[in-house]
Simulated scan of single mutants.
Amino acid sequence: MSKYVMWGTYCEDVLEKRKPYRQAHLDGIAAQKEAGLVITLGPTKDGTMVFGIYDAEDEAAVRKLVESDPYWENGIWTEYDVKEWIQAF
């Protein structure tokens, strides 16, 4: 398994627009964390970006996790990028 970082952006008015999808999003992330797929995931303090660290077989697996998230499926996350990460420390 390799580690990957994901940076993404949120839609305008994210706090209001995410409400219908928030619990499903949190439940999915909790399941991924329990399975060892996501190490951490969360928004920047200003609420404009999301950052995550994943432990996955390859970039395609991370993209599948991101694109199956209710936030992506419903336009709460508007774009994202994934890069393989080398954890030096």
Results as ranks from 00 to 15, higher is better:
Asp46Arg: 05
His25Cys: 05
Tyr10Gln: 09
Cys11His: 11
Glu67Gly: 13
Leu37Cys: 06
Asp27Pro: 14
Arg63Gln: 14
Ala31Leu: 07
Ile29Tyr: 05
Lys17Trp: 03
Gly47Ile: 00
Ile29Glu: 04
Lys33Ala: 12
Gly28Pro: 04
Ala56Phe: 02
Ala31Tyr: 04
Asp69Cys: 09
Gly36Pro: 04
Lys64Asn: 15
Thr44Asn: 03
Pro20Tyr: 05
Ile39Thr: 02
Gln32Pro: 06
Gly52Trp: 02
Glu34Leu: 13
Leu65Cys: 07
Thr9Glu: 14
Gly47Met: 06
Ser68Ile: 14
Val66Ser: 01
Tyr54Arg: 04
Pro20His: 04
Ala61Asn: 05
Tyr71Pro: 02
Gln32Cys: 11
His25Ser: 02
Ala56Lys: 01
Val14Ser: 08
Lys33Glu: 12
Glu67Cys: 15
Glu67Tyr: 10
Phe51Trp: 04
Leu65Tyr: 01
Val38Pro: 02
Leu37Gln: 05
Thr44Lys: 06
Ile29Phe: 04
Asp55Gly: 10
Glu16Met: 11
Leu26Gly: 11
Glu34Ser: 06
Asp46Phe: 06
Ala30Phe: 09
Asp27Lys: 11
Glu59Thr: 04
Asp69Phe: 05
Leu41Pro: 03
Glu34Lys: 07
Tyr71Asn: 06
Gly28Gln: 00
Val66Thr: 01
Val62Tyr: 06
Phe51Val: 08
